[in-house]
Design a protein around this nucleic acid. Structure first.
Length: 717
DNA sequence: GAGCACTGC
């Protein structure tokens, strides 16, 4: 390549013997050729004698479709249903369809599935596939899950937040439930011992797969630029290797776009006839090789048929939460060994394949973590802790809840603090009646709290809309690409602007506009909004409305008659409800400029994201106080989706900050920060100003920029 | 003036 980097691949030493492997699904008769079927007797025998069994089998080894059928065949569905959880909706639907087909029954009768918005089960259903989130909801209504005789937690190795909560609940349930319960945990990787230890050394069964080998090749040095080495490797492969599609794993949209355009350039310049023709991201004509450049979405969620070669950059973009700052960050990090093997396995689904790892084997062996850090250790746990509190597990201290991988005490205390600020728990850490209602809502705690407060102010209808829009946030605007960029900007001018109050109000206004067109699909397309996303919003809104119906004090319908957008009073109560709901996500503007400081956490200086529609006043100043939906560090720390709030609503919240005692909140078991004597330090910090002149310049330029932005937008109206 | 991976109730 241009850098002249020598880049040779050396075969992986045989001694390790952990080649990733793919597996061919039998497409013929039901249960034919599936390795798991040979283990039927062994499985039944083990389940008979043990309440919990761990089953290790490669993805696609048949465990997802066959385990439930084997248990049914041996009478386990007589005393209750067999429930099988899946981390993803599509999996719940497709696997249940397959099982219904194999048993020769109609989907939704004896075999069914339940996912959000869609329950295709009935009284006769004895095998039920469901997402783990749905099972958590069911366990809220029926903590003993008595409708099930067997619960199978499938794909537990993915360690989704919901699966981890379920693992803890199952451990407790098998000891406490009066009627018999069998729990099966399936995993594709070899950390069965850990799960077994967690469940009092329960037995682990290994189910081998009928697998295609994947040859692993490592680079002999760390690439200077992994984009360049992806490019070089893909081209080498394309010229040298026989037919078969190439799957490249990269970290994000930008790198993918760059690589794709470079590939197109290079391949166009290759001599005609020297290689097969290549198309990227288009249906493959005969005798064509596809090169698919993807994020980790292709690890699990998306399966591309025909992939024989995998190129693994060794990196992934991962979101993590810092509980001391309340800030998420999106970082490019090294993948884990499990993830690397999952990627390699994508090369061997249809025949023997090859995986090119763009890193030396020493990096894999010495630097990669064995497993990906589970989501529960990378997330804000306010919602999780509220959920557990609402289950009333009297015998269990939430801070000592038995997780397979417990989150840090700091993270749990952060969750308690946040829940206290939004009135979900009282000063002793006990769940309040507000908290109970919040736990019933499938929303982040801040939004649940907003709905309840809005109900008191008579603006529940508006709050329902805002919460629903935020639930679909990422699905609303079409994916950015260079061609649609300009177009989208023009379209945005036609959208409402939040009347200057910020993004929550804009989201509300957008939905109200759509409502006024009688949910016209063309209106969405004309305004650059995703149809699928907005339909999702409508579904969420209906679901939230049903839950709130029980306590609603006013109408839930979208408002149509009111057209007075200019009145300040229009959104007064909605913004007030948002302020109460987002008491844990509040920021105060710096005295000298338009930066903000977060309240209630170790103070962070942050900026409102430039895409926000929040408007400064005539002097170019942004509001003194705002609430934010998300605080995330990308190139800098940004507040995304913000709304202006009034100082007089903020003052009672500041009082709560100073009354906060984490030791009491955590029932006496919390650790006390000596500096703050158990209290949150939120006394107004003196702003450190060095070099007054520079600060002055900074202030002027920031305010000037804000003003110009504001004027530019006004002018275009 | 930035541009964020994935999933779920």
């Amino acid at each position: 390549m241009s850098e002249g980097v020598s880049f040779n691949y050396i075969p992986k030493p045989k001694s390790h013997g952990d080649c990733a492997r793919g597996f061919k699904l039998s497409s013929g008769s039901p249960m034919a050729n599936l390795p798991i079927v040979q283990f039927e007797e062994k499985i039944i025998e083990t389940v008979e004698q043990n309440p919990v069994v761990v089953i290790i089998g490669e993805t696609g080894s048949g465990k997802s479709t066959q385990l439930s059928q084997i248990l049914h065949k041996h009478g386990y569905s007589k005393s209750g249903a067999i429930g099988v959880t899946q981390p993803r909706r599509v999996a719940a639907v497709s696997v249940s369809r397959r099982v219904a087909q194999e048993l020769g029954v109609r989907l939704g009768e004896e075999v069914g599935y339940a996912i959000r918005f869609e329950d295709r089960t009935c009284d006769r259903t004895f095998i039920k596939y469901l997402t783990d989130g749905v099972l958590l909801r069911e366990s809220l209504a029926n903590p003993e899950l008595n409708q099930y005789s067997v619960i199978i937690l499938d794909e537990a190795h993915e360690r989704s937040l919901n699966t981890d909560i379920l693992l803890g609940l199952m451990k407790r349930l098998i000891k406490r439930r009066t009627s018999n319960l069998k729990v099966l945990i399936t995993s594709a990787t070899l950390d069965g011992e850990k799960v077994s230890n967690f469940f009092s050394n329960c037995p682990v069964l290994n189910v081998p797969g009928k697998l295609y080998p994947v040859e692993i090749l490592y680079s002999n040095e760390r690439p200077k630029s992994y984009l360049e080495s992806c490019l070089k490797t893909a081209l080498d492969l394309h010229v040298r290797e026989p037919e078969g599609d190439i799957l490249v794993f990269m970290t994000g949209q930008d790198d993918i776009d760059k690589l794709v355009s470079k590939l197109e350039d290079k391949i166009r310049s290759l001599e005609e006839g020297s290689c097969m023709d290549v198309r990227v991201f288009s249906p493959p004509p005969a005798n064509c090789r596809r090169i698919i450049v993807s994020t980790n979405i292709a690890e699990t969620s998306l399966t591309v048929d025909g992939v024989v070669y995998v190129i693994d950059s060794g990196y992934v973009k991962q979101r993590q939460y810092n509980s001391s700052t309340g800030m998420y960050s999106l970082d490019v990090v090294q993948i884990s060994k499990v993830q690397a093997n999952q990627r390699a396995g994508r090369a061997g689904r249809t025949r023997p394949g090859k995986c090119y790892r763009l890193y030396p084997s020493a990096v894999y062996n010495d630097e990669f973590l064995d497993v990906t850090i589970p989501e529960i250790q990378r997330s804000s746990l306010a919602g999780t802790v509220l959920y557990l509190k609402s289950l009333d597990l009297r015998d269990i201290d939430i801070l000592k809840f038995d997780f397979l991988d417990p989150p840090s005490s700091e993270s749990l205390e952060d969750a308690l603090k946040q829940l206290y600020l939004i009135d979900a728990i009282d000063e002793n850490g006990l769940i309040t009646s507000i908290g109970r209602t919040m736990a019933e809502l499938p929303l982040e705690p801040s939004l649940s709290r907003t709905l309840i407060e809005a109900n008191e102010y008579g603006c529940l209808s508006q709050a329902l809309t805002v919460a629903s829009m935020l639930s679909a946030e990422t699905m609303l605007l079409p994916g950015r690409s260079k061609n649609t960029e300009k177009k989208r900007k023009q379209e945005h001018l036609d959208l409402p602007d939040g009347s200057g109050w910020g993004d929550h109000i804009q989201l509300l206004q957008i939905y109200e506009c759509w409502h006024q067109t009688d949910y016209d699909i063309d209106w969405l397309k004309d305004h650059g909004l995703q149809v699928r996303g907005m339909k999702f919003v409508k579904d969420v809104r209906r679901q939230l409305g049903q839950i709130m119906q029980k306590i609603a004090k006013g109408p839930l319908d979208v408002q149509t008659s009111r057209r007075r957008r200019e009145s300040e009073q229009d959104y007064y109560y909605l913004r007030k409800a948002l302020c109460i709901g987002y008491a844990n996500q509040l920021a105060e503007r710096m005295v000298y400029h338009n930066g903000y400081r977060t309240l209630g956490f170790k103070p962070q200086v942050v900026q409102v994201h430039p895409s926000s529609v929040l408007e400064p006043d005539d002097e170019g100043k942004l509001p003194d106080y705002i609430i934010f939906h998300e605080l995330i560090a990308t190139s800098r720390p940004y507040l995304r989706t913000v709304c202006s709030v009034d100082i007089k609503w903020v003052m009672p919240i500041r009082n709560k900050f100073s009354n906060l005692n984490i030791n009491k909140l955590s029932g006496g078991s919390g650790h006390i920060d000596e500096d703050t004597n158990g209290k949150l330090s939120d006394s107004p910090k003196k702003e450190v100003v060095t070099g007054t002149a520079e600060v002055q310049d900074d202030r002027d330029s920031i305010i000037q920029a804000a003003r110009e932005r504001f004027l530019a937008r006004k002018g275009k109206k």
